[in-house]
Nucleic acid binder design. Sequence first.
DNA 1: TATTATTGATACTATTTTAGTATCAGTTAA
DNA 2: TTAACTGATACTAAAATAGTATCAATAATA
Lengths: 135, 135
Amino acid sequence: MKLLTKHTDYAVRALLVLAKKRGEFISAREIAEAQNMPYQFVRRILQQLIRHKLVVSKEGTGGGFRLNTSPEKISTVDIIRIFQGKVQLSECMFRKRLCRRRRNCALRKQIKRIERIVSKEFENITIGRLAESTS
Amino acid sequence: MKLLTKHTDYAVRALLVLAKKRGEFISAREIAEAQNMPYQFVRRILQQLIRHKLVVSKEGTGGGFRLNTSPEKISTVDIIRIFQGKVQLSECMFRKRLCRRRRNCALRKQIKRIERIVSKEFENITIGRLAESTS
DNA sequence: TATTATTGATACTATTTTAGTATCAGTTAA
DNA sequence: TTAACTGATACTAAAATAGTATCAATAATA
């Protein structure tokens, strides 16, 4: 049972790199190297972060990426949602098409509860807090 | 973000069917039909449940499967472990080979905490409790 | 004893998700 | 004008998940 994909993992690390050098534009190359992540992969991840307004970029020589908000406002649950979709434990229990037994489904309520717990926990883990704890 | 696979889902449902008819041997065919699950797939799942001693089987005509323990003693976390491995959020943060930054990894502690929470929650959800709640 | 309904074991295929690479056009600083 | 960059996007590879098929062994029963 693996909850986090590389996308999420790398995105968090990339944001941490940016959080530690706030204000500066850091290139994808530098970010990738700082955390031993595959360059092209990280580039695509950064572009998604741009689309979701978590970072801004500057093109051309000396360009790169910079946080768009304060690190405290970026929570890991946002990142999970961007790369892995909504926190939900099993699709089949919620989509009518996949499971007609929705109402009867014994697991459903319990799972909804756990989902809420997990969401809440990740909400509290912000880039800001993570950056502090590694300083 | 999907936590539970079909394996786990079907296994839980199969066990619920058995829990509701304790003592009797129920055939894979019947179990599959009762929950609209693919027959051959369910058969393989049942065989894994046998290997893990959660159910016992009887071969031949009139044979089938039966719970090996009381439903209260079967917790969903066991089933998750059988089909999806240990509850852990991201491999790379724990295996040295994959991530040398283990010690520094800001996410690690937090994630460990969430893992424990998730495990504990699933521990409390037993087949017994689920069977009751759908009766 | 032959038939039929079953499990045991296991090989196979298909689909989807995750991970990673490559390429080319456009931008900007020096 | 060149080199260091991002934007966009197509492509491939690998792994996980989902599902199917087949054949042998077993046991009840007609």
